[in-house]
Design a protein around this nucleic acid. Structure first.
Lengths: 205, 205, 205, 205
DNA sequence: GATGAATGAGACTTCATTCAT
DNA sequence: AATGAATGAAGTCTCATTCAT
């Protein structure tokens, strides 16, 4: 039985009304423009709230972005955790993670764009709480891989980190065109195919 | 024999002295800061050239970035093309591409950062000439995969695009920490391991 | 016997708990920063009281400052008045005033800074109650000078106002470096020396 | 013969057209409002120049103020130096300095206000070049006093610094009401009287 | 081919202050 | 008597970019 993932119990500080409106407004705006060209003024106007509240509640324009991000991520992680409870075995869990991850990006193109394109550009991100969660997520996957190795299901002549890179990287690369070209990500059978590639390899035998 | 890759023949317009200094200056600055926080003033000062020349020669601050990018990319592609001439078979070519790609990012962390983090953030990029080259590169890899399928070396029950995604994505994910944390990318045996994972799969058998 | 100084009888309106905490907080903060860069938020936080109370009790951020000022000034004036009771003669009284004034500034660098630097910058000050007190103080000194003239102790070929200017100005100029450079004002023999300079010049012979 | 005063040779870096207009505009505005309530926007508009030039040429809104100040101060010091050439003897020089100083404040109430009230409030001032000049000026006066002592004209049982404080302080205190209440400073016989007060006190007999 | 100067536009941010509870 | 929340109004400053020479 796997240890519990590392993100459990994380919850967001409660922000009053105004803060909530601002988050919602930013999410709305991100649907149309990239973060860089959304001004605080516009966010406030869209929210019907005061611009200064951005600074009161989130410290920063970027703080607001992170708040939005974290909220979404926490929801995803909570869902994921619950879904994982019903599945046994490292392999099947990895498959599930991949599938849900793609679904996550497919369901919310805005979030996908931020995670895949927007946020990595900004140095501060990698010191943020949000990134901590992302790292936990990555570590959890590595752990799953190692469990698979211990159980004799997964080859152990390659590093678990590399396996995770291939899985996560492949998955992200596949999802990227969605937010870039404002195309829909079709979550259909792709997760399956991607994991199949990773799990089985591509060589004919 | 594979068709020739699609990027052949592209060459850069010649720019006079001042332009060269500016490109060099930008490359230097990118070693320390991200593009967003490098000002045109600073570029000009570093270059010892006049700020207005950025506009004369590159149209735009971002034009300058693209010029730097394209130059580097073209060099990489030319090298790659030459190296490929000595290798036969889709599989071995794919292995070589992966290896050289990682080496490319390893050798120049600045370039790696721009390609992996910086540039994707900016919508205009995906309409740029540079991105055209990148797309050609991706298409070339897909073509290699298909050749492998035709030759019976690669399974053909999954899409070639997905295979490319897994390969390229894994590779990029692996290289990312380099520019992010200003760490060195160790090109050692990682390319091999990554391709091994993709080619053979991770399941024990 | 001199007429009583003009500031007698002034007393401060009683403010409840919260108000007292705010005044104390402001005094504390002024020890480290200048008034301009102390925010109402910081005052409230330091006081452990609510920001809005500043407005309820003092009408204004600056009103709070004046309250602090006035309180201190009244205490000084009361002390001064008592000390003066034991001294006869205009000259000796002037000497005492100078000495106590320097001691006043020496004892509380915060107050010194406000009076010597901070407050004069703000036009409203010169219409404030506090400034009324200060004026009374100045007038009282002029009166002392005139008494000295009448008693034949002080030359009367120069205006009493000028004499007061020289005395007060010299004294202030001497005390200024204290708050400016956060140095201690050494009240030692300086008051004596300053008055000696002024008095020897104004004594009839 | 006294050593030359310490401010000789100081000159301002030449600023292009736009900078000059901004300085002039600020001077104009200071005639009506205090520095704190003059906005950069208003300065630029008054100057008919671009707001950003304030930052290009003076680094800062306050930098512009200092430029104005320094320019005026340098002019004063140059005039003073020339006038002093025709006068012999420490006493007479001190008298002249006092007189010209009062005239300086009398002639330009704007400058007087800045020096006497505005600028001292701002911590950075005391690290500025302008303040260096002011200090030189003070030191020059102390030197004059010492020369007078050496020549046996001035009593030497008190510190020269204190004498300077009394002189400068008295003079400033006398001039202060001018800028405060927007009154005219009458430079008439006051300088004489002030110095008479101080000098007669410090003259040996 | 190059330069110094100027500019427009707006970004983020800060605060004193008010109000409803 | 006190509080949490919200707000308006500016304010300083930064930059990419253009132009005249």
């Amino acid at each position: 039985m796997p240890e519990s993932p590392g993100w459990r119990g994380l919850s967001e500080a409660s922000v009053p009304e105004g803060g909530r409106k601002l988050k919602k407004a930013l999410k709305t705006l991100l649907r149309k423009e990239d973060f860089g060209s959304i001004t605080t003024a516009k966010i406030a106007k869209t929210a019907g709230a005061n611009e200064a509240l951005i600074y009161r509640y989130f410290g920063d324009k970027r703080g607001l972005l992170h708040a939005v991000l974290k909220e979404s991520l926490l929801r995803y992680l909570a869902d994921l955790e619950k879904s994982l409870e019903n599945v046994e075995g490292a392999i099947d869990r990895l498959k599930l993670v991949a599938k849900l991850n793609i679904q996550y990006y497919a369901k919310d193109r805005v979030i996908a764009r931020i995670f895949l394109l927007e946020v990595r550009n900004y140095p501060g991100y990698f010191e943020s709480e949000t990134y901590e969660l992302v790292k936990d997520y990555g570590r959890y996957m590595s752990r799953l891989v190692k469990e698979g190795m211990d159980a004799g299901e997964i080859r152990n002549d390659v590093s678990s980190g590399h396996i995770r890179d291939v899985l996560l990287g492949g998955l992200e690369h596949f999802c990227m065109p969605g937010p870039i070209f404002n195309r829909k990500i079709s979550p259909g059978s792709d997760a399956e195919e991607l994991t199949k590639i990773v799990l089985d390899g591509i060589l004919k035998r």
